[in-house]
């Protein structure tokens, strides 16, 4: 018994050590920095004051960007789910001999740098891009149709980046479902659709929720699609952090924004893990 309670810690120790040293400690530095001051030269002055936080909440500008980020992240999650579930289900059901190959294809976009992929949308959606070129040639439109540099284009870029995460998360979870369960359901007179709704869908929820969480969190930390595909008002919180930390070398304020964002995300992830988390669902299943 003693041996058993010690075992999970043994299994966890390498991960915990790495994450502790390379994440927890550095993040503590960030939190400490958020109370510091910035000298005009860009050097940091140790201090303990809440000026950076006060600045963030002084008017609606910064909180507004944070709220906008959350909204864009939720929209991205929604579209990812719509676009991702069916392909994942297809992989699960298909008996094609090309299945592994099709799976690898999902990861293929990653082979081309994120920056290049994002820039590539300009060649498709831009004023002289593929789509406009096609419609102009066909004579369907007279003026190029403006599709770039708005929030839609940003979400498009985000989807392009995040969809594989969603598909693979859902697929892995679907693939773990015991086939005999759906067979049993059908044996009891369920139609294919009912079997899906009553058995497959609920059992795939761990993957769905993991995918949603992942997409949400990653959207909050991404700055390239808004930078490249967005218009002037489409910047998200990560762009702001990037500009403060790197652009103006204002580490204390950048740290304060980061701390606020990390705090928010930590609450979300913790709540998720507690109420609808992987372990919770597993507990429910294992009791049966």
């Amino acid at each position: 018994m003693k041996n058993k309670s010690f075992r999970p810690w043994l299994l966890l120790s390498p991960s915990l050590t790495a994450v502790f040293l390379l994440l927890v400690v550095p993040v503590c530095f960030v939190v400490v920095y958020s109370f510091w001051l910035r000298a005009p030269s860009g050097a940091d002055i140790p201090a303990f004051q809440f000026g950076n936080y006060a600045k963030f909440f002084a008017d609606f500008f910064y909180p507004g960007i944070l709220l906008k980020t959350i909204r864009v992240a939720l929209e991205t999650v929604f579209f990812c789910l719509i676009m991702g579930y069916i392909p994942a289900y297809f992989f699960y059901k298909t008996e094609s001999k090309f299945k592994p190959f099709l799976m690898i294809l999902v990861m293929l976009p990653f082979w081309i740098s994120f920056i290049i992929r994002t820039l590539s949308w300009i060649n498709i959606l831009g004023d002289s891009g593929m789509i406009n070129h096609f419609f102009l040639q066909m004579g369907l439109i007279k003026e190029p149709f403006a599709m770039l540099y708005n929030e839609g284009a940003v979400i498009m870029g985000l989807l392009q980046y995040l969809l594989p995460f969603m598909i693979l998360n859902i697929y892995v979870s679907l693939d773990g479902i015991d086939n005999s369960l759906t067979e049993a359901a059908k044996g009891l007179g369920c139609t294919e659709w009912q079997a899906f709704r009553e058995v497959t869908l609920p059992l795939s929820l761990p993957g769905v929720s993991a995918g949603c969480l992942l997409v949400f969190v990653l959207t909050c930390g991404t700055y390239l699609p808004p930078m490249i595909l967005g218009g002037p008002g489409d910047e998200l919180i990560a762009n702001l952090i990037f500009k403060r930390v790197i652009g103006t070398l204002d580490w204390p304020f950048g740290s304060a924004i980061s701390t606020i964002l990390m705090g928010l995300l930590a609450v979300i992830v913790y709540t998720y893990n507690k109420y609808m988390g992987i372990s919770q669902i597993f507990n429910a299943l294992s009791k049966e």
Partner: peptide
């Protein structure tokens, strides 16, 4: 330019964002 950097960079962000 360096003496105004912080103030103006932040103001510029707001102008850009349309605020």
């Amino acid at each position: 330019w360096n003496s105004h950097q912080l103030e103006w960079a932040e103001k510029w962000d707001r102008i850009r964002a349309g605020k």
